[in-house]
Design a binder for these strands. Structure first.
Lengths: 249, 249
DNA sequence: CGGTCGATTTGACGCACGTCAATGCCTTGG
DNA sequence: CCAAGGCATTGACGTGCGTCAAATCGACCG
């Protein structure tokens, strides 16, 4: 798996992702509590509002590539994004999927450490890193919040290492479904059926497997009545208890 | 691989790890430039000095376990530490090895996200998280520095995901040797031969392999004149160019 | 409505790496 | 010096997942 993606449904009837702050401004942002913008006073929010530039992109749009100078920092307010790294021969590892409220753009001195591409149509809040750094000086609260986000991401990355290094294919897929469901729940969505907008290839490259193994594992889950496929991108978790057990950590 | 480790040479003749700041205080700390203590004024260093408690531990000593309340934060000033996560059935993933100058103790709300155990004898600088947080309020510089460290760790974690998800056994071992060598170089050590104090089991659990595969891969490298084993814990990188190529990212 | 194209599923088969089992080696201690 | 206890290495063999290849499905379009 590598190369640019192909057309995917931009939205699903009756399951349109929650709309973010695209028009109304940061004060009305529905996902602010999830982002680094959380916990700011009204006055501070206005400072942020002045800095932000809003963007919308269609599916399968490259935002930046690994190694690019990291000039911007983003919050996702709608849709899904994938982050990935490539080996010279094209092998790909997806390091994360971002949903609304997720943050994007931490980078070391060598620029972005991964490439970013939209999975579905997305809305983004974009900040210039330079200007944001100035704001950090004014509002240490923001930097504290950023450290918390980075720490949470690090913890998630460590969990993923455990998954990639030591879990079986079935455990990986079960864990993926359960985690995706939980992330939707946190965002006020039902979480069951799970909305899974990425391709099997994306899932495979996230879980360190092949497309075929992901597909076969899902088929096996279906056969064992653990899940039921409403459509290619909608999976009902029928036996969530058993799935949780498989995903157990 | 799991369970507590067994005796290992505490030091190697002629290769004793660099001594840290154990006696002289932070002002004389040899690894400060690598830690979050970097870039502070003399006065600020004194504040830190007042907070720090120094510890020494022998090899194979557990510092804390995953889930423990995260009361402390550490800097390693001598020796090597491993961080790991366990699955209920005992499968283990080592998420990182720490050397002198490395930082330890970022944690989410569920306490430490990994267990920590010494590999060799170590010296540590220990801070109470609560007190350190107070210092952060006084010196935003410190928090900035902490964010940088967390970001660097996150980037390293993403590299490790790529390794665990997509690299072959030979690539993993080559990458491990080369990175260990580079880390020693940064610390002013020769970096060749590489000093590798952890057991084959530790390496296996770090690379998502088994002891046998690590051992076989090293034997194959030896046979192909890529490396030469001076001892179990000292590996000469004979054909570093070829190793770098295998590790290529 | 039939055709096209890519994504997904399914099947057959192979292999890289895991498992199981000696054997060897190094360190420690009597 | 010998014995014991752990690692580490090596060999033989097994298997989970990858590879290759062929349906099948589903969305889009003229």
């Amino acid at each position: 798996m590598s190369g640019p993606g192909q057309p995917l449904p931009t939205a699903l009837p009756g399951r349109a992702p929650k709309v973010g702050c695209s028009a109304a401004g940061c004060a009305a942002c529905e996902v602010r509590h999830l982002t680094f913008c959380a916990g700011l006073e009204a006055a501070e929010i206005n400072h942020l509002s002045a800095l932000v530039s809003r963007q919308t992109h269609g599916p399968h749009h490259a935002l930046f590539y690994e190694g690019d100078t990291a000039e911007h920092v983003y919050n996702v307010t709608r849709g899904a994004i994938k982050l990935y790294k490539l080996l010279p021969d094209g092998r790909r590892q997806i390091t994360g999927f971002l949903l609304s409220g997720d943050f994007l753009g931490l980078a070391g001195k060598d620029g972005y450490s991964y490439s970013a591409e939209t999975v579905t149509a997305v809305d983004l809040c974009r900040f210039q890193r330079k200007k944001l750094d100035q704001l950090f000086a004014q509002f240490p609260q923001l930097e504290r919040r950023m450290l918390k986000l980075a720490t949470d991401e690090l913890i998630a990355a460590q969990d993923q290492m455990l998954l990639l290094g030591r879990r079986t294919a079935a455990e990986r897929v079960a864990s993926f479904l359960v985690r995706l469901s939980e992330r939707e729940t946190v965002r006020g969505l039902p979480g069951n059926p799970v909305y899974m907008p990425m391709t099997r290839g994306d899932v495979a490259d996230y879980l360190g497997l092949t497309i075929e193994t992901v597909s076969r594992t899902l088929s096996q889950f279906k056969h064992n009545r653990l899940i039921s496929l409403k459509s290619l991108t909608e999976i009902e978790l029928v036996d969530k208890a058993r799935l949780l057990e498989m995903a157990a950590s």
